[in-house]
Amino acid sequence: MKELVILSGKGGTGKTSLTAAFASLSEHMILCDADVDAADLHLLMEPDVQQRTDFVAGNEAVIDPDRCTQCGLCKDLCRFDAILFDTEPDRFEVDPIACEGCGVCHDLCPEQAIDFPQKTCGEWYISDTRFGPMVHARLGIAEENSGRLVALVRQETQKIVSEKKIDLVLTDGPPGIGCPVIASIGQSSAVLIVAEPTVSGRHDMERVARLAAHFKVPAMVCINKYDLNPDQTEAIEAFAGMNDIAVTGRIPFDPAFTRSMIEKKTVIETDDMSPVSLAIKSVWDRVMEHPAMKMERLV
């Protein structure tokens, strides 16, 4: 089994549309949407949700005014400025948005006046799509723990992989280079970075590429909308060449991406012989030929 994580650094480069297109080109595949903070893949996949589960992670401090003697210790201890003193009536209160759930106030309050209930931070789903199963999630607004939700979604994907003997996991990765991205690439076979030929796209791509190298995950790159700026396209390819990143191809700018999105289809489904579809197929062939993605099959 191989897992390809599709990343982009910033988002908005066409990562999700490409993930969907690759799904329509693959068999025995499962989709994993690890972009839990702003998940979009379901908009193209129209998943039929089979199982819905609460994501319970972390805790939140709540002060019980009846037990609190207003000694102020919790406010001094909280490093996240989450405990406020409110007047009218006078009382200590926790700001739920600022609370990190570290539990220090709960453990150390001399009056045991701080409860520490578990929090539901989102939901995750196992679904069927027209291309295969899909595991996806939704993180609640203003929640922490996105890295943990990514890890959970990937774990659940692995369970289905062993149950159903699936060959390939396609993971739509989160933006950035922080905790959710790190959680999405560990133990994966390879990452494919979808880069845009802009000064900022190149910068973003270089940072993700360094992150992949830091965690020793083989990286590939493809350039979307390459014709927007051929100079930047070449610069990205040159960077890749010098950093042991396989260049898998160039995809032209095409309004078909947006049109397909509106029709809830992949670009390949819209017209599988269009220039953009042919370019995507060629990228996909090269991705699957990469040594890190070669399937070990018994002859």
């Binding site: 988002g11 702003a38 993180l139 203003a142 929640e143 922490e144 922080g178």
Partner: peptide, 10 residues
């Protein structure tokens, strides 16, 4: 601001 709706954006 960073993208998304989780703790960094807040």
């Amino acid at each position: 601001a960073p993208p998304g709706t989780s703790c960094p954006v807040i």
